[in-house]
């Protein structure tokens, strides 16, 4: 009972707007500390890899970007399903807020993977299974964004893109399996060893710090974007008046 009232309170736009605003520093500060510590550990403290030399240090931005791009797609699809089934606007706002973040990290993962491939494979691009499925994931994000932007009515854009996100998330494991299957037939296993349980702690700890740092950064970014999406969906609500009034007072006080 208590959790339900809490849930209802959270899903009401003014509460959500306020709580998301209060949460931002709690995510942003740990994100900044973890990423700085992780990058410092990865660039300075971790020893060079015995096979790849210093080029392996790209992993500290490549692997967390890959993780975020997949996590964002899952979050987006779950939020979209919740929004579609229970007609919760906040869930649609979260899905809309997550998509551009996930797409940008899919792009980062592809770009750093390609840069990493140049010294390791000798070419900027190989049709490696992971790079190819990451590319298809980026296409899925672009399709989602294209559908969203094709609708003028935000409620309709929410529901239509929610159906696409759900169909897409069912497809992601199938795409992953099919690309791995295709790749194993046409190429040997990749020469690039990207992490693994054999990593010494001095390499592994910065990687874990980066994973958590990127995840916290997503949470902070999602809070900011959810606030924007809530505002877009609540143009004429009266609670905005209080918000505007408070803002006006603080501005006149300074």
């Amino acid at each position: 009972m208590g959790t339900w009232t809490w849930f209802h309170k959270l899903s009401s736009p003014p509460h959500c707007y306020r709580i998301a605003g209060q949460l931002i520093p709690w995510f942003a500060i740990p994100a900044a500390l973890l990423i700085v510590a992780g990058i410092y550990g990865g660039l300075v403290r971790a020893p060079a890899d015995y096979q790849q030399g210093d080029a392996f240090r790209i992993i500290y931005v490549h692997a967390p970007a890959a993780w975020l791009s997949l996590m964002c797609y899952t979050v987006m699809a779950v939020a979209a399903a919740v929004g579609l089934v229970w007609r919760i606007k906040l869930a649609h706002a979260l899905a809309a807020a997550t998509a551009p973040i996930g797409a940008s990290f899919a792009l980062l993962c592809l770009a750093t993977g390609s840069i990493w491939g140049k010294p390791m494979w000798g070419t900027w691009w190989t049709w490696d299974a992971r790079l190819t499925s990451q590319l298809i994931l980026l296409f899925l994000y672009l399709g989602y964004q294209a559908l969203r932007s094709a609708y003028d009515d935000i409620g309709k854009a929410d529901r239509a893109s929610a159906v696409l996100a759900i169909v897409g998330v069912v497809n992601v494991p199938i795409i992953h399996f099919s690309v791995n299957w295709w790749n194993s037939l046409h190429q040997g296993s990749t020469v690039l060893r990207r992490g693994g349980p054999a990593m010494p702690a001095s390499m592994l700890v910065p990687l874990i710090l980066c994973f958590f740092g990127f995840t916290f950064l997503y949470a902070a970014l999602a809070c900011v974007r959810v606030r924007a999406e809530v505002l877009r969906r609540e143009r004429n609500a009266h609670w905005l008046q209080d918000l505007a009034g408070r803002r006006g007072r603080t501005e006149s006080a300074t």
């Binding site: 990058i39 660039l43 210093d54 080029a55 931005v61 990290f105 980062l108 010294p119």
Partner: peptide
């Protein structure tokens, strides 16, 4: 960066940009 400066720093630069 042990001869990999261009690759490592461009990756980190891109990450910073994103």
């Amino acid at each position: 960066m042990g001869g990999y400066a261009g690759y490592v720093w461009s990756s980190y630069g891109l990450a910073a940009a994103i």
